[in-house]
Amino acid sequence: MRITQGTFSYLPDLTDEEITAQIAYALDNGWSCAVEFTDDPHPRNSYWEMWGLPMFDLTDPAGVLHEINECRKAYPDHYIRLNAYDSRYGRQTTALSFIVQRPSSEPGFRLDRQETSDRRVRVSLHPYAADRPAGERYRS
């Protein structure tokens, strides 16, 4: 199972050179970059933990890649994504978002089915990783 969230999620993982090219594209457009991480990539979990503050003042892609690598060192078994924000609209608008690191093993999700009154069926999504405690979900 491969989590598919954000831009490029159906492609093979990007190399650092490809990530740097995307960061340069974002910075050339005047977008601020931010790094986030989580061990719960559920599709409804849109609020990942932020690694530091958004990098409003950086103009060099190497600075953003440095922060990504520092987050990778601190959280080697987590999902890490890069977000680029376009501030032209006067509010936080995500212009680009993509995963830059995944755990070595992605256990996937299952659908839980529940029958209710009048023969209605409710379905919910359950991540297998959530069966383990937070912080230990993707450790081998």
Score class of each variant (00 low, 15 high):
residue 3 I to H: 04
residue 6 G to K: 03
residue 8 F to L: 11
residue 8 F to V: 03
residue 9 S to P: 08
residue 11 L to D: 15
residue 14 L to P: 14
residue 15 T to M: 02
residue 16 D to S: 12
residue 16 D to L: 00
residue 21 A to K: 06
residue 23 I to T: 00
residue 27 L to G: 09
residue 27 L to R: 07
residue 29 N to Y: 08
residue 31 W to Q: 04
residue 35 V to R: 04
residue 37 F to Y: 13
residue 39 D to I: 02
residue 43 P to V: 10
residue 45 N to H: 05
residue 47 Y to F: 13
residue 52 G to W: 05
residue 55 M to N: 12
residue 56 F to S: 04
residue 56 F to I: 11
residue 57 D to K: 12
residue 58 L to D: 07
residue 58 L to F: 13
residue 62 A to M: 07
residue 65 L to K: 13
residue 65 L to D: 04
residue 69 N to A: 07
residue 71 C to E: 08
residue 74 A to T: 05
residue 74 A to M: 11
residue 74 A to V: 03
residue 78 H to E: 02
residue 79 Y to N: 04
residue 80 I to T: 10
residue 85 Y to F: 15
residue 86 D to C: 14
residue 86 D to G: 09
residue 87 S to H: 04
residue 94 T to D: 03
residue 94 T to I: 15
residue 94 T to M: 09
residue 95 A to L: 14
residue 97 S to Y: 03
residue 98 F to D: 04
residue 98 F to W: 01
residue 100 V to K: 02
residue 101 Q to I: 08
residue 104 S to W: 08
residue 104 S to T: 05
residue 105 S to E: 02
residue 105 S to F: 08
residue 107 P to T: 01
residue 108 G to H: 05
residue 111 L to N: 13
residue 113 R to C: 02
residue 113 R to A: 09
residue 121 V to A: 06
residue 128 Y to C: 01
residue 129 A to W: 01
residue 130 A to D: 03
residue 135 G to H: 05
